[in-house]
Design a binder for these strands. Sequence first.
DNA 1: TGCAAATAGTTAGGTAGCTAACTATAGTGA
DNA 2: TCACTATAGTTAGCTACCTAACTATTTGCA
Lengths: 167, 167
Amino acid sequence: MLELKNLPDEHILKKFADRYEDADIQKVLRFLTLLHVATDLSNGLDRYLGSHALLQGRWWVLILLMREDEGISTPSSLAEKAGVSRATMTGLLDGLQRDKLVTRMVAPKDRRQTLIKLTGKGQAKLDEVMPDYYRRVKQLMAVLTEEEGQALQKVLLKLSQHAEIFD
Amino acid sequence: MLELKNLPDEHILKKFADRYEDADIQKVLRFLTLLHVATDLSNGLDRYLGSHALLQGRWWVLILLMREDEGISTPSSLAEKAGVSRATMTGLLDGLQRDKLVTRMVAPKDRRQTLIKLTGKGQAKLDEVMPDYYRRVKQLMAVLTEEEGQALQKVLLKLSQHAEIFD
DNA sequence: TGCAAATAGTTAGGTAGCTAACTATAGTGA
DNA sequence: TCACTATAGTTAGCTACCTAACTATTTGCA
């Protein structure tokens, strides 16, 4: 996602609105602000994870594995839960395996499958990263009042139900 | 950004909260929902732009050029305004130039610089894409009441002022 | 039973992002 | 003036995403 350092000021938006009649300046600003702020926060999260030699993709795979009893899953299941293609998951697992944070094993029941297991080193990496991650998220979201936090959640869910407007 | 198809349910978050004491379940859910919904909307926007042989990065460069009088800028300036590295901008401009949506010219004043100009074909591409983009954004944001829209904007700006919490 | 369809995973090739290192040019100060 | 520093842009090599095409295996049904 593009970061959009400079959101358009209202003057520029008006120039566009003159050429493109359907533009609703306030609504466009809100839409771009949502993408912009989320990208900022996502980049911030990546900076934090990067300081522990992780990035969001790999970090999320470790979390999905920790959610499982035994810390075992399959590439397909992980891809579906992370919302990425199986091809992308292959690449993420290659990196995690190289760093010995997960292992690949052949599944005895179905020889098409590969079982992915969180290693001790992988669990240790999560134990290193998660406490501070939770502290920072708590600190960030605490800048909102409880009412604001609830309102944000409600409004976001409402928008997410209409993301297919772009299809 | 990772899409997080399945946000954690409260049961799983509790398992994590037991191991990592500082976790605040509600706040983490709100944070992840923000990233998740913004990613969904960003992907939707990319699907729409993709149907016109554009993606967010290239589309945004065209918009930045149209903001300029004469439709002229430089790679450095575009990179700064788009919030990407100059290396990334080189790649975006390579693609746009290949599709003849922009042209590169040597700057007469400073021979280190390259001037980037929006072509007629580039402006035509914007004229093809923007009206429907504005219609769809208007339609999407109209699912919120005016009060909800204002509250969203306010809360997002508040959060963006604390994105450095991850540093 | 045996072959077609479905599924699991990988590979190949594309876009979009990054940092670090490089070249060319411009500016500056002893 | 001339060497140092700063700036503009590109290249190289990395991560992470995609789709399409491929291999191996399993499933299902005629």
